[in-house]
Amino acid sequence: MTLATLSQVLQPALTNGYAVAGLVTLGWEDMRAYVAAAEAEGVPVILQAGPSCREHTPLPILGKMFRHLADGASVPVVAHLDHGYTFEECKEALDSGFTSLMFDGSRKPLSQNIDETARIAEMAHSAGISCEGEIGFVGYATGAASEGTDPEEAAKFADETGVDAMAISVGNVHLQENKEGGLDEVRIRAIEAVTKVPLVIHGGSGVPVAQRQHLAATSRICKFNIGTELRKAFGSALRDAVNRDPARFDRVTILKETHDPLVEATRRVLQAFGGSQKG
């Protein structure tokens, strides 16, 4: 069994200069492919259940799915709650076997975000698992704008919450389909100068691959969340499978044909973070 906590995979990444992928899951087909890709690359993987995933599948079921995959995996697998918004939701994830809780209080006043995140971090640590928090709101490509992380607030947040990883807003955007943007490295370095906690980039699909490689090797950013990029790869493979024979209706047969293309797309994502060479 290779079930791991977030700290167990991020601390080696921080020490050795690479990053770990937090891969946003929507169902069995993608999470299975993500683990297969991680095994092929010989790197740990963080399976993430975000809000849209949880709308489709209950947390207790997701916990069992993640843990089942970890049981048979040859690499460390983290069962991670992504964007938990309430204490109750985080507690349900913990009770469902998750090994990492990400509480998102980034839209709340700083003092409230600190207090609520600290409470969840304490709960997580008491159970022997990890906690990720967020300081500075990360916006959406077609929605609310980002609010950049203030380095001084980040230092206070990291110190007073006790989180194991800290998500920051430095030019990253959720659901971005292209890689025409880029992260604010000046702001990243300013945050690094006043904090020691591993840093996390949400909306990693919009970050140019070369910058992912550079920051994974040279910064405290130890985790990039990737969702949109791999959802597009899955959607393309599914569309090809359906169109290959429009008369087919057995979804198991159709979905099987998404596996290999998604594994290959995921391997390309994982290769950019350097863990294959350094892990």
Rank of each mutant, 00 (worst) to 15 (best):
L10W: 02
Q11W: 12
P12C: 02
L14H: 04
T15Q: 15
Y18H: 12
A19H: 09
V24L: 11
R32W: 10
A33L: 04
V35R: 00
A37Q: 08
A38V: 02
A38W: 00
G42V: 02
V43T: 04
V43F: 05
P44V: 09
P51R: 05
S52E: 12
C53A: 15
R54E: 07
T57W: 08
I61E: 13
L62Y: 00
L62G: 01
G63C: 10
F66E: 01
D71C: 11
A73E: 11
A73L: 09
A73Q: 07
V75H: 09
V77Q: 06
V78S: 01
L81M: 07
D82T: 01
K91V: 11
E92M: 14
L94M: 15
G97W: 03
T117P: 02
A118Y: 12
I120D: 01
I120W: 02
M123S: 10
S126F: 03
S126L: 10
I129V: 14
G136M: 13
G136S: 14
G143E: 10
A144K: 10
A145C: 05
T149Y: 03
D150A: 04
E153F: 01
A158W: 01
D159M: 13
T161H: 07
T161K: 05
M166P: 00
A167R: 02
N172K: 08
L175V: 14
R187T: 14
R189F: 11
I191L: 05
V194H: 08
L199Y: 04
S205N: 01
G206L: 07
R212H: 13
H214L: 14
A216Q: 07
A216I: 06
T218Q: 14
I221C: 08
K223M: 11
F224C: 08
N225M: 04
R231P: 02
R231N: 13
K232H: 13
A233I: 11
A233K: 05
A233Y: 03
D240S: 14
D240E: 15
D240F: 05
A241D: 08
V242A: 09
A247K: 15
F249P: 00
D250N: 15
T253F: 08
I254R: 13
I254G: 12
T258L: 09
H259K: 09
D260P: 03
P261E: 05
V263R: 07
E264K: 15
R267T: 10
R268P: 02
V269Q: 11
A272T: 15
G274N: 02
K278T: 04
